[in-house]
């Protein structure tokens, strides 16, 4: 019974866990809100401003709608996981099918990336200036998506590393090592654009703040992973070593994410303007930011697919299907 429906059951359990965690998160926010609540923002009955200046949105409706959404997603994914999702993952774990399927996806990914980027940049440059920072805040439209992506890329690598170690799927190794260089570049760019933004707003290019330092550590981790992979001649051994290192260093991601909450007002880095379910930004500024964030995610996917396809060809160079792909079959 379980063996037959393992996909459906595991996805449903994961979503139930996510839904419970989300409910706990909302309950904690409610408790904090009672202590720091100072005023109710006019016109928005469920939006409050805290003593820290943070705008928090809370309502029972949010909680119920969030739960219903999760139930809906659970039902849909549960119904279709065995028929579509599990076979899709099975197919993607085969190098031959991965190469063919992702080749079809690439043009669509590029079109979506470019469309979102043009729309996001236009929205970002035509949005009103920020009250305190003026025009310079527009760096947010590249800095924040890059910073989010630097962490997301690492989480993708961590999942691939876990899959590689537990199930020994070859494609997980390929995805893991293909993500590392692009993750390093996004982290580097997040640090550089942050420094360029920091100088006019903080008066310094760099400070040994927890958020900045942990992001710098993330860059070193990416470089370490790339260096470790290149030291081994046998790619299977290299992949195993890299997977272990990736999983060990994943501890840095929550440090980056929660550094602002842990340090409170002791940090120079500003508090998160956007997080899941809430935002202190005006809609005219927020929408271009979210659009740019999705544009960078699609860009990441497109580049990772390009790199992984080359890696697949190299690793499978003795297979017959590769000769067909290269047009040199007998």
């Amino acid at each position: 019974m379980f063996a037959k429906h393992w996909g459906k059951l595991s996805i449903t359990l994961l979503l139930i866990l996510f839904s419970v965690l989300k409910t706990i998160d909302y309950t904690e926010k409610n408790a904090e809100l009672e202590d720091v609540l100072v005023k109710q923002t006019q016109g928005y009955p469920y939006v409050y401003q805290t003593t820290m200046g943070e705008v928090v949105e809370f309502s029972a409706l949010n909680l119920v709608s969030n739960f219903l959404l999760m139930v809906g997603v659970m039902v849909v994914l549960g119904l279709f996981s065995d028929r579509y999702l599990v076979p899709l993952f099975n197919k993607l774990s085969s190098p031959k099918h991965y190469y063919r399927m992702t080749g079809k996806w690439l043009p669509y990914l590029w079109v979506i990336t470019l469309t979102l980027m043009v729309y996001g940049l236009y929205g970002g440059f035509t949005a009103p200036a920020e009250k305190y920072q003026g025009e310079v805040y527009r760096i947010i439209y590249i800095h924040v998506p890059l910073a989010w992506l630097s962490m997301m890329a690492y989480m993708v690598m961590a999942v691939a590393a876990f899959v590689s170690i537990v199930w020994r799927i070859k494609m997980a190794d390929v995805v893991l090592i293909s993500c590392a260089p692009i993750g390093a570049i996004f982290t580097f760019l997040a640090l550089v654009t942050g420094a360029v933004w920091g100088y006019p707003t903080w008066g310094t290019w760099w400070t040994w703040d927890l958020r900045l330092t942990s992001e710098l550590v993330l860059l070193f981790i990416y470089l370490g992973i790339i260096a470790l992979y290149s030291t081994y001649e046998d790619k299977r051994t290299a992949s195993r070593a890299v997977a272990v290192l990736t999983l060990v260093c994943v501890v840095n991601i929550p440090i980056i994410h929660y550094s602002i909450q842990w340090l409170g007002d002791k940090t120079l880095h500003q508090a998160n303007s956007v997080s899941v379910g809430k935002s202190s930004m005006d809609v005219s500024m927020l929408i271009p930011l979210l659009v740019m964030s999705f544009a960078f995610k699609f860009l990441f996917a497109a580049i990772v697919i390009m790199r992984s396809r080359s890696e697949v060809l190299l690793r499978e160079s003795n297979s017959r299907w590769v000769e067909g792909v290269l047009g040199v079959e007998k």
Binding site: F125, T126, A127, P128, A129, G134, E135, V136, R138, I139, I142, H143, L146, I185, F188, L189, V192, T193, V196, W197, Y199, P200, L299
Partner: peptide, 26 residues
């Protein structure tokens, strides 16, 4: 809008620099 402030804003250099660096690298 930002386009109207292109010539006058003192922070323009920082904005252009960050977008240019990102564009070149990507």
């Amino acid at each position: 809008s930002f386009f109207e402030l292109l010539a006058t804003d003192k922070h323009l250099g920082y904005i252009v620099a960050s977008y240019a660096i990102t564009f070149v690298f990507v």
